[in-house]
Design a protein around this nucleic acid. Structure first.
Lengths: 228, 228
DNA sequence: CCGAATCCTTATTGATACTG
DNA sequence: CAGTATCAATAAGGATTCGG
């Protein structure tokens, strides 16, 4: 009964009650966690538990509520996965995808605060890392580099490919990767981009595990630039 | 002692604890009311009570807290007014002003929700009205129009000037206005833009009071277009 | 395991009254 | 005017439970 969802959305929701497009926007996406949920969906569909992983601290009841509200507002939709996986995923609708430029601008605006002083125990979401890699990619440094590397942490994985000056960052494992790296904290990857020479030290200290072609991984690091 | 303010900011504030520029943005401007406060400051400095008027429902304690947090985050600043007015105002800092494009995009994104179905008791903030007028101004329709009109509601006032195809919307009263209109609800002004022929009816019903040159006011209405 | 629903505690907010 | 103080109403956070 879809009416129940709509009713829930229309009835028990706090609103600014202002005749103003900004206020209406905020009524829809201004609640705590909402924009971060959308960020988590920006690289493709995610399951409920994937979202929980990417958003530590959200609390399962709140995540469920947000997902319902967002579905009622038509910014995400729930989709069933084909038979093998007896599960379903959440996806951005067109309306949800249209928030991407806003999210990018907000991220750009927030960079100084992050740079000024982040807490060492800050969680680095997989999606946030993928997004960061896209931003740090430097085409001029990528000439001659051809590398496909799987990156994983815990049960999450994505891969990065640089080939002929083109970057691809995607969820999941690459069909044919040159190397695989595993981190406990993805911030280690940023550290390596800033200082590639510390790779062996990172391996020795157990901060990362690298299998496959090490030189390809090193060359991949060269295609990125840590923002000053 | 500015340290006290900073301490307050750093210490008792809920944060996402995510290494992500978007999360840091939202730590700063993601709280309820914050972006609407910034909207209220977009047309220039405002006093505490002005802000209260533009944000019905905020509660004075919360407004005070937000203002402190925003000052600590360097997006607004408090300024003393010169002697005659024994008062002070809040202004956007450069960092605060740099949020303007984001706010505009958010407003653009929210338009459909507003158009679909707004509540008739929604409050139409003066600032929101000023902003709407800017968006609805249609230069092609403004040729030949020269009008300066004061607009007021309650204790708030601003003026609109169209001259040689240029629009100016500013807080306060114009030094030399052709006409003055007063509304109980500024949505009436939008109605007049959509249907200028209803002006006399609006006056007769007491929804608006018009003094000065009526034909100039009518010509002014012609310079705007209600979005379809 | 996945995807929540429930219960309970804490934090934030909203409304009102009050003060320098 | 420009806030504080107080207190009730909500929302968020955390742990546990429960049905596919």
């Amino acid at each position: 009964m879809p009416t129940a969802v709509s009713d829930h959305y229309l009835m028990n929701k706090r609103t600014y009650n202002q005749f103003c497009p900004l206020a209406y926007s905020l009524d829809v996406i201004g609640d705590r966690w909402t924009l971060l949920i959308i960020r988590e969906l920006m690289f493709g569909p995610r399951r409920y538990t994937d979202l929980q992983q990417g958003l530590p601290g959200i609390g399962t009841n709140l995540l469920a509520k947000r997902l319902k509200d967002m579905e009622a507002a038509d910014i995400i939709s729930q989709q069933k996965l084909p038979p093998p996986a007896a599960s379903h995923v959440y996806t951005l609708t067109e309306r949800g995808k249209s928030l991407q430029p806003i999210i990018m601008q907000l991220a750009e605006w927030g960079k100084p605060y992050l740079a000024e002083g982040f807490q060492s125990d800050d969680y680095f979401s997989t999606v946030s890392c993928m997004s960061a890699l896209r931003m740090m990619f430097t085409p001029e440094k990528a000439t001659g580099i051809s590398a496909t590397v799987d990156i994983s942490r815990g049960s999450e994985a994505f891969f990065v490919q640089v080939h002929r000056g083109v970057l691809a960052v995607q969820t999941g494992l690459a069909p044919l990767a040159d190397a695989s790296v595993r981190f406990d904290d993805l911030k280690t990857l940023l550290m390596l981009i800033g200082n590639p020479a510390t790779r062996q030290q990172a391996q020795a200290s157990g901060m990362m595990t690298l299998t496959g072609d090490e030189t390809v991984f090193d060359s991949l690091l060269g295609a990125f630039n840590l923002p000053v």
